[in-house]
């Protein structure tokens, strides 16, 4: 439907609905996904459409139902496990790190785990320290997992299908702050490769490399920079593990400058890793040191002005890049 606006929430919902229609083995389970309609109304009315066998409400039992998802995947199902928010995911970290991520390798290739875990993530709704985590780097640290970050409506709509087709465990980070955001969806879906980063805007002067909520911020900043005569390329990492190094390298080799943006706090972040890879592969292509704009190294505070100050904002990206390119 070209030209029609759609919310990020509706994109996710359509993706789930389509997956349930496409494959009888697919079911969704998680806290409040059924009768409540999803904590963020993502799965609203799906219970009525697909019934309680396919839309399973679970108790508050993250370790239990993530573990059960792993077991169901081993048993031939294709579960979508919704961890209501990333903030509760550590309760299931043992299941994710010790079972989902290890079983295939540890069993010598015998048991793969075709599981998709979705979690709503990020900063921006004044939920204070315990409900505002950006833990992508934490999960991206674990070999055996594929970590996806849904930074656009297109990915919200089309990433789930390839994730379900993946024979291995996939964790999808969605962003609560973007749920109501309306955008146009590309009229025809190109097939999404969940092994590839994506250049969201081509440019020649600098590569803004980001993911998640950083993508639209970077695009907004790029528009403003264009007005100032700076042609920025925006690279959406999308896949935080295994990282698509080639797309990063190709972009930096072209623009000779890299500016990394993410909400997660700076130390030991995804951008730490991207920066290191750029040093390893593109050192002689660089005209300037790699720079980063990341989350502040604090527990995220409740008041709006402090919350905003905790994560990168488009204006900061613009200022920093102008400074980097000596346009200031």
């Amino acid at each position: 439907m070209p030209g029609q606006l759609i919310t990020y929430r509706e994109c996710i919902k359509q993706a789930i609905r389509e997956a349930l229609q496409a494959d009888e083995r697919v079911f969704i389970m998680g806290e409040d996904v059924g009768r409540y309609g999803g904590a963020f109304a993502v799965s609203k009315n799906l219970l009525q459409e697909f019934g309680p066998e396919r839309i399973m409400d679970t108790p508050l039992s993250e370790a239990g139902f993530v573990g059960a998802g792993i077991g169901a995947a081993l048993g031939g199902m294709r579960p979508i496990v919704e961890v209501m928010t990333v903030n509760f995911s550590l309760l299931a970290l043992d299941q994710i790190a010790n079972n989902a991520a290890t079983l295939l390798h540890m069993s010598g290739g015998q048991f793969n785990v075709p599981l998709v875990i979705r979690m709503s993530s990020g900063v921006g709704r004044q939920l204070a320290a315990q409900h505002s985590h950006s833990w992508e780097p934490l999960f991206a640290h674990l070999p055996g997992l594929r970590i996806l970050s849904v930074g656009t409506h297109e990915d919200a709509r089309y990433m789930l299908a390839p994730a379900l087709a993946d024979p291995d465990p996939v964790i999808i980070f969605e962003y609560t702050s973007m749920l109501n955001l309306e955008k146009e969806l590309p009229d025809s879906a190109e097939s999404i490769e969940i092994s590839k980063a994506k250049v969201r805007r081509a440019g020649k002067d600098i590569s803004i490399i980001t993911y998640g909520t950083g993508v639209y911020k970077a695009l907004e900043a790029a528009t403003e920079l264009a007005a100032a005569g700076i042609d920025a390329e925006v690279v959406d990492l999308r896949v935080l593990r295994p990282l698509d190094e080639e797309t990063i390298v190709a972009s930096v080799a072209k623009t000779n400058r890299a500016f990394l943006v993410e909400d997660a706090s700076r130390s030991v972040s995804v951008s730490s890793e991207v920066s290191a890879r750029i040093m390893e592969r593109c050192f002689y292509d660089l005209d300037a040191p790699v720079q980063r704009l990341c989350g502040a190294e604090v527990p995220i505070p409740y008041p709006k002005h402090l919350e905003d100050a905790s994560v990168p904002q488009p204006a900061q990206i613009v200022t920093a890049i102008k400074t980097l390119l000596q346009h200031a």
Partner: peptide, 16 residues
């Protein structure tokens, strides 16, 4: 760590 997996495997058997 494997108890919940066992439940999931049984759940898959039940569903299938």
């Amino acid at each position: 760590g494997h108890l919940a997996m066992a439940v999931g495997m049984a759940l898959a058997d039940k569903k299938m």
